[in-house]
Design a protein around this nucleic acid. Structure first.
Lengths: 243, 243
DNA sequence: GCAAAAGTGTTGGAAATACACCCATGT
DNA sequence: ACATGGGTGTATTTCCAACACTTTTGC
């Protein structure tokens, strides 16, 4: 396992060297994998492979293979690095400044992924793979601070127009957990009653008739997200210029 | 001029051949340039250079040079193909399916650009460069239908959260023109009185005290968009989950 | 009984919608 | 005079924001 990892790294370096000498541009994918735990928005990072970035943290990235689509590359990287599949994943945008990679010209496509930290225990720990608070100013390699920031902003927008957030929660969750999630992502405080009203009125949650347990206070009801209900609903029609 | 164009094409093909033989992935930028004329949303297209796509229409694209940022490449392509600069331009996303380019593996980054058709008369007409209705089902090369579609959807969203639309209008415009623009982009009908109320209440328009002329009806007042007013305004705060 | 969070309704204001008539201009 | 779009106001509804007390559980 470790051997194959090292092998892989070597290949990357070889390819990078080749790209550099050819004067050709490389393409990579970087996965920004968000999780939610302890009422904090987290992101998965590894210790950088590159000598120039020794000790710095890096997003999960790799060069795109010639025979795989960008999305496939993103799923592959996710799988290789974390052992996870069946997670939410969406492209955010490309980052392609000339100077962003020290070894060669590499354009990277950033992908956002949302996973449930508890459900998908980390199976691998290569390169000190671990969760970090998004808010904490990590010492990062490349232009990864910028990429992480762009992905966080993307998430803030996206989570308000599409029900992504549930991917970050356990299948059954209390409304308090859901609200904590939104507060963590959006970095705002929300009114509890209005928040509940809002989500109940959207008619997307199924009551499980189960309750929290082992909590040192009155246990809350647990709900499940019903994606079919979401799909079958009329999408809000346009207008209301919003600037 | 024509000679240099041909020269350029040859270079592209050479590079593509090189990329193919190397098994390396190429990077291009495709510009989706929207305009607004005759109350229709238009897009700039050229006749494709590629033999495989003879007779088909193509977005304005080119390989990214090794020493230029992606944004720079987009501005360059715009300038080379249309002679225009100082236009609105923003990255949308990358398209990187394995099979999207017949000659080689090429990942393309799509950019949206908005220009005022009347103000920037087309200075060049290489490859039959011309405006086409977005709604009209053109016979397009590559995966350009998909890219155009994604960019149109991007525009529909973006124009409602940021005042881009003014880039498509003359400096001085009537409210009717503004409304026609939004109706064309969003493909909806809007109520005239509510539309006016909305934009006046946003306090972004300066009254020029001028009027339309040469119109076969009562002339409308002309307004200018005031970007400073926009910047100085409080941006709407979050919340209001919107699914 | 105390701490901690669950659960619940009402009200006022703002914004969105729907809708109809008179006005200014060119022909 | 008439056709065309410019310009305006009001009533209704919907959505959002603000806000306080009672309930259930663990300790």
């Amino acid at each position: 396992m470790l051997a194959s990892k090292l092998q892989e790294r070597k290949d990357v370096k070889t390819v990078l060297r080749q790209l550099k000498s050819d004067g050709v541009i490389g393409i990579s994918v970087d996965c920004v994998i968000f999780g939610f735990d302890d009422n904090e928005l987290k992101v998965l990072m590894i210790k950088s492979d590159m000598e120039q970035f020794e000790g710095k943290w890096s997003l999960l990235g790799d060069l795109v293979h010639r025979n795989e689509d960008l999305d496939e590359a993103a799923y592959r990287i996710l799988k290789e690095r974390t052992g996870m599949s069946d997670v939410y994943l969406e492209q955010v945008r490309a980052f392609g400044d000339v100077i962003r990679h020290p070894a060669a010209r590499v354009v990277t496509i950033a992908y956002c992924s949302l996973i449930n930290i508890r459900q998908h225990r980390l199976e691998k720990h290569d390169n000190e793979l671990q969760w970090h608070k998004v808010s904490m100013g990590l010492d990062m390699a490349f232009d990864h601070p910028r990429i992480l920031n762009a992905c966080h902003e993307w998430l803030q927008k996206r989570v308000q127009e599409h029900p992504l957030g549930f991917s970050l929660l356990p299948q059954k969750f209390s409304l308090r957990e859901l609200q904590n999630l939104y507060e963590a992502i959006l970095e705002v405080k929300l009114d509890r009653r209005n928040f509940r009203k809002k989500f109940f009125s959207m008619n997307l949650l199924d009551d499980t008739n189960e309750y929290e347990f082992d909590v040192p206070h009155r246990p809350g009801k647990l709900y499940k997200f019903n994606y079919e209900k979401y799909l079958s609903q009329e999408r809000r029609k346009f207008m209301g210029i919003d600037f």
